[in-house]
Write a protein that binds this DNA or RNA. Structure first.
Lengths: 345, 345
DNA sequence: AAGTCCTTTGGGAGCGCTCCCAGACGTGAT
DNA sequence: ATCACGTCTGGGAGCGCTCCCAAAGGACTT
């Protein structure tokens, strides 16, 4: 308790100014890298800052400047279940990396229910952050449009549909799926089945489209009996593969739109006495821990999660910058995926 | 751009006061739930707030009050690798849940290198947050002591040693391990081996201790040939189990201090022609996705991650509260684990 | 020598709150 | 009627910045 009297004793900009023998405005200019400061003055101020250990007070800055130097990363609970595993840590890591050089803060907000959503909406509407990164893939999520309507800079992780209006960063789901299936075809497989995600999700549509593109490119016939709809869960994968096996017992490869579904697929294949990859080759999507630790290890399509996080942050920062300068910027980005080949195919 | 003129048009406390026909101070009192406001006045103010859609400006509040209404969740990169998977999302979810009713903000900070650590240290030293949640298990991490020295309220996730001084929230690693091994013994296993984590980590020491306690309680002899040191990686698990098999080919159960190591163990056991669980029963720790999707699904010790997150937040908030009131509070908490039984044992 | 323009600088005003003091009013005791 | 004391209220001061205007000075031009 003795030392705590020191609280608030942190030097202020004013003290730095006094110490350096200049005015407040000048110190402010140096800190914010404004032009029109002579080298001599700048050096003196910088030295004063260093000697006093000055750190600007964010609250004061935010209040005076009307900006917050903070962005929010918003994760609706619903997404949390579907994409759990490597997804968030990857995105978060990327975002954080990109923000490290800035002095933007990252605010994490989980939204579990409508009440929390409203609370967040109000919070954002009150301009308590400079921008929002939103993990959202559900078409019926009202948040993106809300952000749009209050002109809050925002970037989505993933698209809600093919003609997404809000700036987004996504990975090439179609291309990734196509590559995966082409890989299977290249290994001599001819009866390639797929287990899709729920088809009301755009990401699931894309991955199915990639599957179809690959078949078409290879001149293989598309057989609807080789397509089963899953739900991104292991049990869904099980169910789908049972269905596939009953319809086309001769299938020799399965492309699953997620690793977790591939785990379910793998179990059913084993139960049915089929060996992986000898009898049926298996490929997943996500390159999650599940894929790495499966037996045999699962070939999977890797999304560049960290890079996606970085991109999201970058796009958002640009957007904030542009908005401030009165420009309009609505760029999005689609990043390539990578096929990670393992023993399952 | 037309509408953006509205920016900053959000009502201020002053406007609320005018609207309600009271003074600024009164509105402030109502907002902060201070006593000494007549019911009539309070109602009038609350109505004004509702009608105007007033939301307090955090920056202004922080500046005037000298507090920030924000806490930081700090994750050193090193931990990110080891504990990746369910750990962070669980903790984060818990923390976020607990904070939802507060108007505390959650700031996420990843620390990748010494430079970022220093930056964060400076940031914290400047009292830009009210408290810190620190995921840290490495004894040589300087951050906890730094926080201690500047009297910043802090709570660790996990202990660095048995006599941790900084308040922490941990799960009962020893008890969890003991329960797991007792479970194996209860299923008739007699040559129970263990794969430990790196023994310079307290968490690994605890889990080993739990293993020993279980053997002793059951009156089984401890054989050092049944203990192999791993490193929480799959490859480490592989290596450890190969070692164990060469030393005690008759082992009939393995308790691994992490699921990922159990995945490695499982692979080696299969290679050696042993069936799980018929020949060798297997138990892991963490109850991660890997455990659920393993073949056979892995029995594992579940940590109550979300509850741990909640506890951390609660303990930190209490600490902040107490500190503000001039009291001293240093409570910690150890939460029970739960054995999740699956087919591997 | 006077005027013009640019660069550099100091410091007032104000951001929206909280804190706190002083005043207004009511109640009961003297 | 007077005073003391309590409850409730208004609003000044100030938190530490940024913004911006005006002033000081230097380098040119006419």
């Amino acid at each position: 308790m003795t030392v705590s009297g020191r609280r608030g004793q942190r030097p202020t900009l004013e003290q730095v100014a006094a110490y350096a023998g200049v005015g407040r405005g000048t110190v402010s200019r140096v800190i914010n890298g404004a032009a029109n400061v002579s080298d001599q003055t700048r050096t003196a101020v910088q030295q004063a800052i260093a000697e006093l250990g000055y750190v600007p007070n964010r609250a004061a800055r935010a209040l005076a400047a009307g900006s917050t130097d903070a962005i929010a990363l918003v994760i609706p609970e619903a997404e949390t279940r579907l994409f759990a595993e490597p997804y968030f840590s990857g995105i978060i890591r990327g975002v954080s990396t990109e923000l490290a050089d800035t002095d933007m803060q990252l605010l994490l907000t989980l939204i579990r229910n409508p009440k929390e959503r409203d609370r967040f909406a109000q919070y954002v509407a009150a301009h308590r952050v400079d921008g929002v990164l939103l993990v959202s893939v559900h078409a019926d999520d009202p948040l993106p449009d809300l952000l749009e309507s209050i002109e809050m800079p925002a970037v989505l992780s993933g698209r809600r549909s093919g003609d997404e209006l809000v700036p987004y960063v996504d990975c090439d789901n179609t291309g990734g799926a196509q590559t995966a299936v082409e890989h299977l075809i290249g290994r001599g497989r001819r009866a390639v089945a797929t287990v899709t995600g729920p088809l009301d999700m755009y990401v699931a549509q894309c991955r199915l489209q990639g599957y179809r593109d690959a078949l078409r490119t290879a001149g293989l016939e598309e057989d609807e009996r080789l397509v089963a709809v899953g739900d991104f869960t292991e049990e869904g994968g099980r169910r789908a593969v049972r269905e596939l096996l009953s319809r086309r017992p001769d299938l020799d490869a399965v492309f699953c739109a997620s690793d977790v579904m591939a785990a379910g697929a793998r179990a059913v294949l084993r139960e049915s006495g089929r060996r992986v990859p000898e009898d049926v080759a298996l490929v997943g999507f996500d390159d999650s821990a599940v894929a790495r630790h499966m037996d045999p290890p699962l070939t999977s399509v890797r999304q560049p999660l960290e890079e996606m996080g970085r991109s999201m942050a970058r796009v958002l920062l640009e957007q904030i910058e542009d908005r401030k300068a009165g420009r309009e910027d609505r760029s999005s980005r689609v990043l390539p995926t990578e096929l990670v080949r393992r023993a399952s195919s």
